[in-house]
Structures are given as structure tokens and as C-alpha cells.
Design a protein around this nucleic acid. Sequence first.
DNA 1: TCGACTTGCAGAATATTGTTCTGGTGGCCC
DNA 2: GGGCCACCAGAACAATATTCTGCAAGTCGA
Lengths: 189, 189
Amino acid sequence: MTEIGRDKVLRAALELFGRDGVAGTTLSRLRQASGVSVGSFYHHFAGKEEVVEALFVECIALYQSAFVTELRRYEDPREGVAAVVAFHVRWCLEHPDRARFLFTERPPGGSELTERNRAFFGEVLAWWRTHVHHGALPELDLVTAFVLWLGPAQELCRLWLNGEIPTPGNDQIARLGRAAWRALEGDQR
Amino acid sequence: MTEIGRDKVLRAALELFGRDGVAGTTLSRLRQASGVSVGSFYHHFAGKEEVVEALFVECIALYQSAFVTELRRYEDPREGVAAVVAFHVRWCLEHPDRARFLFTERPPGGSELTERNRAFFGEVLAWWRTHVHHGALPELDLVTAFVLWLGPAQELCRLWLNGEIPTPGNDQIARLGRAAWRALEGDQR
DNA sequence: TCGACTTGCAGAATATTGTTCTGGTGGCCC
DNA sequence: GGGCCACCAGAACAATATTCTGCAAGTCGA
């Protein structure tokens, strides 16, 4: 398990991709920042694109696992919905590099990614359904529910990550949580 | 006003950037697709990045002007809010190349862009305020209002543009419009 | 009408960046 | 030891982006 070189690249990539974007990061700078030779780099990765994909998987795994952990803490759907909205924003604020990379770069297509997404949505859906069953949440299709739930928070984060708005405050985050609940609760299929 | 070469590049870039992304579009393909020589290209643009910026400005100008036109058609705030949500999604469906470029690429920093954005938000804000004044809409700060209003639609479009979900249907769009209204209306500063 | 000047263009030459190739450690197993 | 393998080094090469030199057609004032 001696993945020292590989990990060095990924750590450096996280910072460089976050700051300068994937396109703005040259391979030599990435190598320079990670202290890795050409040969070593291509030993671990097929190319730049594979670094993107690996990093994407790593970041999204972190995000999704924290997301699910947070979600599971809540029995009450109203609390859960608001909590996850707050979680999303706070996660972006606490991991700006990872978030910028995840949410402002075009996602790569890799199959591991779709696999993880499937699992993730499965978890969320399970939580959702238990509450639908009890009549607390409407039976929206998952996509609609998802965008109503997290779309505003996501858009807010993107604006912040792009430097277009100041850091969101607690009251603003709370407002998004309450609004998400109203948006979700009111509609019936 | 003989911008023939320049325009040929922009038209080709729209298609190529939309399909393959900025990073995936090489300069030679862009030149080949637009039938423009190296010299001609660099006569009109300082480099690839400037093409991105010019195209971005062009696309966002189209989008924003259509947005404002649509918005102005509505006196009733509830109708206006829902109509603009629908407009946003339909605009993406009707101009997938432009939308993909605008909403899935990292926005460039140019000053003309911030200028246009300022003007645009000014227009929207004006509409918003007239209704706040009449008590029909809450006095949210513009950012919060904006993400609540269009965040879900925007996220839905992004998912579609990335090929992750099927084409949104009319009922789904209408639902987002009604939900946006509930999200906005309920909250007071 | 001349000629300085500009705009738009062509393509060779060059610089920058990404990828492949050849090889060299050092550990591990037989 | 010798074959094998993960890891690494860096020269060589390929692809891509950018600069440079020059040319043709307009235009504008003297």
C-alpha cells in the first residue's frame, strides 16, 4: 500500500485545481507542486484526465458519506430537510477547495462515479420514502425533490465559490432550510 | 463592421464548446470548423480564453435580455415568478449549446461580464421592489431571493445538460414554478 | 495618384504542454 | 543468484498554443 507518490499528486491537485481550475493547471506545475517525476506520474495515472476523475471520486465520496451521516441523524423530516441544507452550505464553506472542484468543474464520466451516485441516491431515497410512507413528505419524483431541496443551497454555494457573493451567514442558511421545507411539503403529485 | 472571420469563429466555438467543452476543444479543430487561419484567429482574439469570454458575453446577453422581456410581461408577482422559472428551463431546452456553455463551464472573469450582470440584476431588482412595495413579495436580500427563485430550475437544467436525467416535462416545470412561489412568499426578513 | 496606414488574412517558426519510451533502482519470492 | 514487479527518473517525442513575418486590399489625406 505504498501509494505515496499517487497521494502526493492528489493532494497537490486538490489545491491547484481548486485555485486555478483544471484547465489552468499545467502538468509540470502539478508535478512540481507534488515533487513527482514525469515517469512516476504516468506510472500512477494514465493522464491528466485520470487525476481529475480520481480526485472527483475522492471528493464526492467524502461529501456523500458526510451527507448520509448527517441525514441519518434526523427522525423528523422537517428537521432533516433543513439540516441537510445547512450541511451542504457548511461543507462548502469548510472545504472550499474540494467544493470548488466538485461543483464548478464539469464532472467526468467515469463508471465508478455513476456507481457511487446510484448508491448515494439509494440511501437518500430510502430516508425519503420512510417519511412519504408516514405521510409527512410528498411523493415527488426523486429528481424534482432533489432540486427543490438542494438547488438553492447549491446555487448559493456556486456563487460564493466563484467569488461573486460574500460568505453566506447563518440566518441566510437557516432561511434556505425553511424555504426548502415549504417548497417540498406543499406539493402533491 | 467586417467581422466575418470573428463571427465564424464564434459560431463554431458555440457548437464545439457546447459539445466537447472548452477543455476538449483544440484550437486547430476550432480553426478547422470555422475555416480560419492561424493568423486570422490571432488577429481577432488574444487566445482561446478570449473566445470563451466573448462567447460567454454573447450568450449571457441573449439569455438576460429574453429573461427581462419575459419578466416585464407580468404584473402579478405570483405569475411572474412561475413564468420566469418556466422561461429558464425552456430557454435551456431550446438553446442547449448556449446553455451548456453558460451553465456548465467555469465563468470567465472579464469586466464586461460583471457590468452586464450588474445591469441585469438592477432590472430584476426593480421588478421585485415594486411588488415588495405592494406587500406581495418579502424583502429578502437579492441573493437569497434569486437562489430560492431559480436555484432548483438551474440545478435541474444542469443535470439535464450533463445528460444525467431525462428531459424535464411540463408538469415538472410547473411544479418548480409553484414551489418557487411558496419558497419565496413564506419568509419575512 | 501617390504612399503611409490600417484591417484582415496566410502560414512558417517557435514555445509550451502532454505523453511515450527506455532504463534504473530496490525489494521480494523461488 | 535471477526473475519479477512496483516505483521512479528523465530524455525523447507528439500535440497544442502562440508569435512572427509578410502580403493583399482598402482608405484617407496631400
